[in-house]
Write a protein that binds this DNA or RNA. Structure first.
Lengths: 201, 201
DNA sequence: CCTACCGATCGGTAGG
DNA sequence: CCTACCGATCGGTAGG
């Protein structure tokens, strides 16, 4: 059942699509990356498009699953901090997936295109619900839930563009810093259940 | 001197590169957009790459010029608010340019590729200087200037993806909202020179 | 501004 | 897994 070649091809697609883009990567390029000729890839898949769809759908499903874990218990302030930390951790540790996910939407064909868009909407919806809840119970203060969600998600996505594992801040420190920035952005009240942990400086 | 066709071609490139991507747009597509055949374009330019380079270099130069105007006078808090409002206004009103600028960097050839990267560095450097100044004089409080700059710029860039002129908030209201979010993110002290203007709700 | 055409490259198939 | 090859499409040129 486990097809090792399938995951080799996926890995090659992740690297090459992220570096050059989908349309600038040929099947020969992908084959060369794993040491075979282009046409040999068709023993493991039906089309180039299949590689892209697999990457983009799986990425959104993983992101949703991670968020659900972080968003399961506690009040809005604590869940905001945990959710943001997880959002940042995911983007920092999956830079190729995220880069492709934000860049190749026009390159996706149906039905994967619609599926990915609906998964993105689902993810945004979970965030809207969380922030709306905090607004309703007085934990947060912000003029527009929708715009706050855009701002918070977008600033976390950016981490994928600059994070390096050998940087001066650890991933946990960076995740905590973004959790703090998201809290400030919403003027979140300090909660007892999730006190801010120590930040550098 | 004014070659009307040149700006027609640029406009076509803006629309098509933003929608489909550079490599997924052919010279015939661009020609069709302005009502000529693909080969006729070569009377006005030397290569497809020239269209992309023109778009990306001009965009970064405009963004830098806009920032310099907004960042010219006052203390860090006021300049932060004005700079952020202008950053957001530019991204909201140039969605195609910005989308191309953030997506087609790998499609750019030298020397334009290096030029655009250095213009981006210059833009980030101006923001770092502004925030460092506010940190030094006690207007701002944030553990990492570099990460705060990434977060602030990135959340403003995101506006290009969702802003519509016929939305419920005006562009000035949106710009002001982002200026407020950036201020909160930096825990900016309220300054006398640039009091927060009225926000919706 | 056009038609005709070039060499190169593409995704994918045939056949072994 | 390979070689050989297909039809289509690409950016760009020639020549008018």
């Amino acid at each position: 059942m486990k097809d090792g070649r399938r995951s080799d091809i996926r890995e090659a697609g992740l690297t090459l699509f992220a570096e050059r883009g989908y349309h600038a990567t040929s099947m020969d390029d992908i084959g060369r990356f794993i040491g075979v000729k282009g046409p040999s890839l068709y023993n493991h898949l039906k089309s180039k498009q299949e590689i892209l769809a697999d990457i983009m759908v799986t990425t959104m499903q993983e992101l949703l699953a991670q968020f659900d874990k972080a968003n399961s218990t506690g009040g809005p302030t604590g869940r905001l901090r945990e959710g943001m930390a997880e959002h940042v951790r995911y983007h920092a540790t999956h830079p190729r997936d995220v880069r492709i996910g934000n860049r190749e939407i026009p390159s996706l064909e149906e039905p994967a295109h619609d599926l990915v868009l609906s998964l993105r909407n689902e993810y945004e919806g979970k965030w809207r619900a969380l922030i709306q809840e905090g607004l309703d119970n007085g934990d947060f203060s912000i003029p527009s839930v929708r715009i706050a969600v855009y701002a918070i998600l977008e600033m976390g996505i950016g981490v994928a563009q600059w994070y390096r594992p050998d940087g001066s801040l650890s991933l946990d420190q960076i995740a905590e810093l973004y959790a703090e920035m998201a809290s400030r952005l919403l003027s979140a009240r300090v909660s007892k259940s999730a006190p801010p942990r120590g930040l550098p400086q």
